[in-house]
Design a protein around this nucleic acid. Structure first.
Length: 467
RNA sequence: GGCGGGGUCGCCAAGUGGUAAGGCUCGGCUCUGCAAAAGCCGCAUUCGUGGGUUCGAUUCCCACCCCCGCCUCCA
C-alpha cells in the first residue's frame, strides 16, 4: 500500500506525497521541549514517535529536513531561573544540555537544526512577522503594551481542532489580567515587559518585552524550512491552541498553506493514570536509567504502541521490553555466528523486511510490524534448529534485520570484553576441559559478580553482559 | 455542555463482514556435568453490554455502560 498518515486536519488517513516530488525532500517541524527542567518520558514518547516517523520516511527513500525548536524563554523558564537566582541563558543551558544527552540515550536521530527562541536571528524574525501582522490588521497593540493576534481576522481559526469558538466554555485558565484584549480568544504575539520578567527583555517597535510562545514556532519554522511544511508534529495537547495559533500567524504572513500533514501523538499514561508529581508516577528518563534500565529499553517500551493511541507506561512494561529485546539480541547473535562471512543467499524469509516496512506505511502501524518481526524470529530459529537454513540464508536474514533495525534502532550496545573477564573465561575453559566442575562453577560465579553472564553451549562458552 | 481517543487472553496489543497477529507472563519439552540462558510447543469458540442488519459481525447500524484526554501558552 501507499505511505499514509492520519492527518489531524482532515481526520483521515491520507496518502503522503511531499511538496518536493523530484528531490524527495521532506520538510518536517517538530515542537521541542521547554527547557526549564528535565523532560519527562511523556515528552520523549512524542520525540520517539517523531524519530520513528523520520526513520521510516528515510527507509522509504526520503530526505528528511527536520527542525526541532527549543523554547528557552516563557513564563516557566523565567520564573524558575529567577527562583534559582541565575541568568536565564545559564539556567536553560543546563536543561538544553540534558535534553541532548537524553535524546542520544534514546537513540533519537538528531534534527538538522535546534533553533532556540532567544537567538537573535529568530527574535528578529518574530518581530518582523508581528509587524507584518500589525500592518495587515491581524494584530494590535493593547493598552498594556502587549501585541495580540486578532482572531476575528482569521476565520479559519479552529479548523485543526475542529472547534467552534462560540462553543468554547471559559475554563478558568484564561488570565484575568488580559482584560486589555479586544476578544477573549486573542493570543499574545509580543508580551510587554513586567517586573516578573526581571532582566529578560528585548527591544521592539512596541517597546521592551518578549515574544509570545506561539510566534516562536511560526518564526523558526518558516525561517528554516520556508513558508510551506510537509509535516508538523507534536503532542495532541498542542493542537489547541498552539498549532491553531501557528497556522493563523504563519498563513497571514505568508499567504500559503503552512502545513500539509499534521501528525499528533497521544498522551502517555503511567499506571493507568495521567502522569503527575503528586501521584508519584512521574518519571524522567534519568529516573529510569537510575533504576538500571537502558535507553533502548525505554525506547522499546515507548515506541511499541501506535502513536495515535494512549500508551500506558508501567515498570512491568519496561521489564517486558527488556525480555523482548534480549530475545532479539539472542536471535541476531545466533544468526551472526552461524552466517560467519558467508555471502548472502536468497531465502523467502527475508521478505519479512518488506512486509515490515509495508506495515509501517499504514500510519506507522508498529504493533503489526513488530508482530511480523517476531514471526521472522520464530521461523528462522526453527529453520536453524532443523538445519533447514543455510549459512548464506542466515547472512541474508541479517541484511533483512539491518533494514528493519534502521527504523527501530534496537541493536544491542557494543560491548567490549574487558581483559580481566576474558582471562577468567579462558581459565574456565581450561577447567572445563579437565572436567574440574568445582573450579568451573567458582569462575562462573566470579564472572557473574563482575557483571557478565556465561552460558555453556555445544560450541563452548558464551559471554554476555548481565542485565 | 462541546470536541476527541479507547474498552480484544493475567498484562501490553494487531486485526478483518467469513470465523481472533505478535510481545510479556504462565505451563510443558529439548539442550545441559550442574546451572543459567536459549530454542521449540501449548495457552481467547471469543472481542464492554443489549438490540438490529446479514447466510454469517469482534468487524456495519442503534441504544446503553465504563475509562482517558482536550476546551486559550502541558508532548
Amino acid at each position: 500500500m501507499a505511505l499514509e498518515f492520519f492527518n489531524t486536519l482532515s481526520r483521515r488517513a491520507e496518502v503522503f506525497t511531499p511538496l518536493d516530488l523530484e528531490g524527495r525532500t521532506v520538510r518536517m517541524y517538530t515542537c521541542g521541549p521547554t527547557v526549564y527542567n528535565h523532560a519527562h518520558i511523556g515528552n520523549f514518547r512524542a520525540y520517539l514517535f517523531e524519530d520513528l516517523l523520520q526513520r521510516h520516511l528515510e527507509a522509504r527513500g526520503y530526505h528528511v529536513l527536520r527542525v526541532m525548536n527549543l523554547t528557552d524563554v516563557d513564563d516557566k523558564t523565567i520564573r524558575d531561573s529567577r527562583k534559582a537566582g541565575r541568568p536565564l541563558a545559564d539556567f536553560t543551558q543546563v536543561y538544553k544540555q540534558a535534553f541532548f544527552e537524553d535524546i542520544a540515550t534514546l537513540r533519537i536521530r538528531p534534527a538538522l537544526h535546534y533553533p532556540a527562541a532567544t537567538e537573535d536571528r529568530y527574535i528578529q524574525r518574530m518581530i518582523q512577522m508581528i509587524a507584518q501582522l500589525e500592518n495587515q490588521g491581524a494584530a494590535y497593540k493593547a493598552e498594556d503594551g502587549s501585541v495580540y493576534f486578532r482572531l476575528s481576522h482569521f476565520p479559519r481559526y479552529g479548523q485543526l481542532a475542529h472547534l467552534n469558538l462560540e462553543d468554547l466554555r471559559p475554563s478558568g485558565r484564561i488570565r484575568n489580567d488580559e482584560y486589555e484584549k479586544e476578544s477573549v480568544g486573542d493570543f499574545a504575539l509580543w508580551k510587554a515587559w513586567d517586573e516578573n520578567d526581571g532582566d529578560v527583555a528585548w527591544d521592539s517597535p512596541w517597546g521592551r518585552g518578549r515574544p509570545g510562545w506561539h510566534i516562536e514556532c511560526s518564526a523558526m519554522a518558516t525561517e528554516l524550512l520556508g513558508p510551506e511544511l510537509d509535516i508538523h508534529c507534536g503532542g495532541v495537547d498542542n493542537i489547541f491552541p498552539h498549532h491553531e495559533a501557528e497556522i493563523a500567524q504563519s498563513e497571514c504572513c505568508t499567504g500559503r498553506t503552512f502545513v500539509r500533514y499534521w501528525l499528533h501523538c497521544a498522551h502517555l499514561m503511567v499506571d493507568g493514570q495521567k502522569m503527575s508529581k503528586s501521584l508519584g508516577n512521574f518519571y524522567t528518563l534519568r529516573d529510569l536509567t537510575g533504576r538500571g534500565y537502558t535507553g533502548r529499553e525505554v525506547r522499546y517500551a515507548l515506541i511499541t504502541v501506535n502513536y495515535r493511541l494512549p500508551c500506558n507506561f508501567t515498570l512491568a512494561g519496561l521489564d517486558a521490553a527488556r525480555t523482548a529485546l534480549a530475545r532479539l539480541d539472542q536471535w541476531t547473535a545466533r544468526l551472526t555466528e552461524y552466517a560467519g562471512n558467508t555471502a548472502p543467499e536468497p531465502t523467502p524469509l527475508s521478505a519479512a523486511s518488506d512486509r515490515f516496512l509495508d506495515l509501517l506505511d499504514d500510519d506507522l502501524n508498529i504493533s503489526a510490524a513488530l508482530g511480523c518481526l517476531f514471526d521472522l524470529v520464530r521461523d528462522s530459529n526453527k529453520a536453524m534448529d532443523s538445519g533447514a537454513l543455510s549459512r548464506g540464508q542466515a547472512a541474508s536474514l541479517l541484511q533483512a534485520w539491518t533494514r528493519i533495525n534502521q527504523v527501530l534502532a534496537f541493536e544491542p550496545y557494543a560491548q567490549e570484553i574487558p581483559a580481566e573477564i576474558a582471562a577468567l573465561v579462558e581459565q574456565r575453559a581450561k577447567a572445563r576441559a579437565s572436567k574440574d566442575w568445582a573450579l568451573s562453577d567458582q569462575l562462573r560465579d566470579k564472572i557473574h559478580a563482575l557483571g557478565w553472564s556465561l552460558k555453556d553451549t555445544k560450541d563452548g562458552q558464551k559471554l554476555m553482559p548481565a542485565q
